[in-house]
């Protein structure tokens, strides 16, 4: 705070010097005070508002104002969804089923099935039919992970863009 005040003092002194010294700066300041707004009639403020009000179009909410939190919420929900899904999969032992299914569609080497609790799962994997859908497993997983990543990137990218928008619009001169 003191630093700021010192800086301002220094700037003032510098300006006063460029202006012919403090006396002349004071004289200039005093002269400038002669340039005043003409006196107003009573009720001028009300008249001003009465003239302005009919020109105010009903405010449409700025789309950025609604979209920014919405998009952020969507990104947040997406993350929450991922976390909840992971939680459910863990709690229900779905990882093993998933691994078994992945082994069946050759997403993970079959040798993985021999470590840990997986051997038991081969029987479970056998339950999941190695149907026509199996080759699509790769594509499905690939598409899902990319969709998730892209969705999140899109959400946060759009949020950042909208958030920066007002600052860009506000600047001029």
């Amino acid at each position: 705070m003191k630093e700021e005040a010192r800086k301002v003092d220094a700037l003032d002194r510098q300006l006063a010097e460029s202006c012919g010294g403090p006396e002349e700066a004071a004289a200039l300041r005093r002269s400038l005070s002669l340039y005043t707004l003409p006196p107003e009639e009573p009720g001028a403020a009300e008249a001003f508002w009465a003239q302005l009000q009919p020109r105010l179009a009903p405010r449409k909410p700025d789309p950025a104002l609604c979209l920014t939190p919405l998009i952020l919420a969507a990104g947040h929900a997406l993350w929450q969804g991922v976390l909840v899904a992971l939680g459910i999969i863990t709690l229900t032992g779905g990882w093993t089923a998933l691994t078994a299914w992945m082994a069946q569609i050759n997403l993970v080497p079959a040798s993985w099935g021999n470590c840990g609790p997986l051997p038991d799962l081969h029987s479970l994997a056998a339950l999941i039919p190695a149907s026509w859908a199996a080759p699509l497993g790769w594509v499905g997983l690939f598409a899902m992970s990319w969709a998730l990543l892209l969705g999140l990137a899109l959400c946060y990218g759009a949020w950042l863009f909208l958030w920066l928008q007002p600052a860009r619009r506000g600047l001029r001169m």
Partner: peptide
């Protein structure tokens, strides 16, 4: 929406011009 340095230079320039324009009046005010 301009840097502080630009404010200072604009003010300095403006005051210089005012000094030149208001010379006799400033002497009187002083």
């Amino acid at each position: 929406a301009i840097p502080l340095g630009t404010v200072m230079s604009r003010l300095s320039y403006a005051r210089g011009l005012l000094r030149a324009a208001l010379g006799p009046y400033l002497a009187y005010t002083s």
